[in-house]
Structures are given as structure tokens and as C-alpha cells.
């Protein structure tokens, strides 16, 4: 059986990786790795990750990488890009690091149209710390800090990140939401988000709907159900803003 190669930009010594079985992160990171390979930017790309499960990717790539603090990946990549504009700065974070503790940085970087690329994995919970409420937790969803189900009256409705970003960011920005359930499409979005930075057009942001069977406590079937039927129904997939010609 012929198996697809690992992306060249993946760092072989740290494989097999430590993500849980069924986790969506490796799929997103594969898409990112392949996109970087295809664009030929391995040597000038810098990768930053947050705290949480994204932290497991700190030595995942054959790229110069840095770990930051929780929610602070965005400003670190902004600082890097402003200091060395020729670098392709890619920040990777979860729904907590992006929409909660990191939201003020995300919002302001989007408003300033910072020429960086951010990829956010949305698995509707704070996974690494044991499954607490996240901004993207769905109404009624049980987490360790909403043990009786998320009540939007008390904790608000789930954050629609790309929608918010696309409405506040500037001309030349690229904003999309993909899903690990549609790998090719997700990879296409990520590739465009990188291309957008190569061309120096503006802020580039891709949210990827992702899976966390460990904290969802779901078997394989239930996991895909939750991702495709529940999350998919709540979070529309597609490009929200793009300086490129629209694709079908």
C-alpha cells in the first residue's frame, strides 16, 4: 500500500507525534506542512504556537519555531513580522488562545491589518487543561466548568470568530473557516492564507473546525457526527473575505 509522504516541512525526529488518537490538530498541521512545501517557503517561515494542545506542535515542524504564552502568540508574531518583514510569520492557537485570553490581540491585529497568518483550531473546549468551557463551546454542551450544559443566558453564545474578524479587518485581508472534515478545502484556505502574506496584502486568518474525542468522550462515529452535524451546522464553512478571485 502506498502511503502519502509526510510533508517535508514536518520534523521527522518528533514523529510519531503525541496528539491523541482522533485529534484534529495533526490534520490541520499536515495541511499547513503541505502548503508550506508547495509554496517553497520553509526557510523563511517562522512558526509560533500557544499554550494548550497547540503547544504539542512546538517542535513539530522543520521550521524555526517558538512557543509563547497563552493568548500571546498573535502579538509575538506581530513583533517578529514588524522587525523582519521578509519572514513568513505563522501563528497557531486554539479557540481559547484566540478568542478568549488572546481576543484583544486578535481584534487589534486584525484592525491594524497585520501582515501575518494565524490558524486557529476550534474544538469547542479547553482541551489540554481537562475540558473546560471555551468561547466556541456550543449551547447545551457539557464541559468541566459547565457541568450541566452551556447556558447562553449565563455565558453568552458561541464566538463567531471569522465573522467578527472579517467585519473589522482591512482591505487585502484573507479570512476563512475550514474543517478537518473537508481536508482539501481546508488546505486550500491555508495555502491562500500563506500566499496572502507572501504577497503582503494584509491580515490572514483561518479557523479550522477540529475534533477532540478525548474531551468530548466520543468514539469515532460520534466524533465525526459532532464535527460534521453539530459544529458544521453552527459554524458555516467557507471564505468570508479574500483579495483573490473567488473560487467555487
Amino acid at each position: 500500500m502506498i502511503q502519502p509522504d509526510m510533508p517535508r516541512t514536518w520534523y521527522a525526529p518528533t514523529k510519531p507525534h503525541k496528539f491523541c488518537p482522533g485529534c484534529g490538530h495533526p490534520l490541520i498541521l499536515k495541511a499547513l506542512g503541505e502548503a508550506i512545501d508547495e509554496l517553497g517557503i520553509q526557510n523563511r517561515t517562522v512558526y509560533g504556537c500557544d499554550i494548550g494542545c497547540s503547544l504539542l506542535s512546538w517542535n513539530f515542524f522543520a521550521l524555526d519555531s517558538t512557543q509563547t504564552h497563552h493568548g500571546r502568540t498573535t502579538p509575538v508574531m506581530v513583533g517578529m513580522k514588524r522587525a523582519r518583514p521578509e519572514l513568513i510569520c505563522v501563528g497557531y492557537m486554539g479557540d481559547g488562545g484566540g478568542y478568549s485570553i488572546g481576543s484583544q490581540h486578535l481584534v487589534n491585529s486584525a484592525i491594524r491589518n497585520e501582515k501575518i497568518t494565524l490558524i486557529l483550531a476550534n474544538n469547542t473546549n479547553y482541551a489540554m487543561t481537562g475540558g473546560q468551557l471555551a468561547p466556541t463551546t456550543l449551547p447545551g454542551q457539557k464541559t468541566e466548568t459547565t457541568p450541566f450544559g452551556r447556558d447562553p443566558e449565563l455565558t453568552g453564545h458561541p464566538t463567531m470568530g471569522p465573522e467578527m474578524i472579517s467585519s473589522i479587518t482591512g482591505e487585502g485581508a484573507y479570512v476563512a473557516r475550514g474543517t478537518v472534515a473537508k481536508y482539501r478545502q481546508l488546505k486550500g484556505f491555508i495555502k491562500k492564507a500563506l500566499q496572502n502574506q507572501i504577497e503582503g496584502n494584509g491580515f490572514s486568518f483561518v479557523e479550522a473546525l477540529s475534533t477532540c474525542p478525548t474531551n468530548w468522550r466520543t468514539n469515532a462515529k460520534q466524533t465525526w457526527n459532532w464535527l460534521e452535524d453539530k459544529m458544521g451546522a453552527f459554524y458555516p464553512v467557507g471564505e468570508l473575505k479574500s483579495p483573490f478571485r473567488k473560487e467555487g
Binding site: C20, L55, T129, T214
Partner: peptide, 10 residues
């Protein structure tokens, strides 16, 4: 080692 918060991992 190196897994930061080292919370839930299967």
C-alpha cells in the same frame, strides 16, 4: 516532558 500543561492526553 515538554508537554506543558500535561493535561488530558490519550
Amino acid at each position: 516532558f515538554g508537554l506543558g500543561e500535561t493535561g488530558s492526553l490519550v
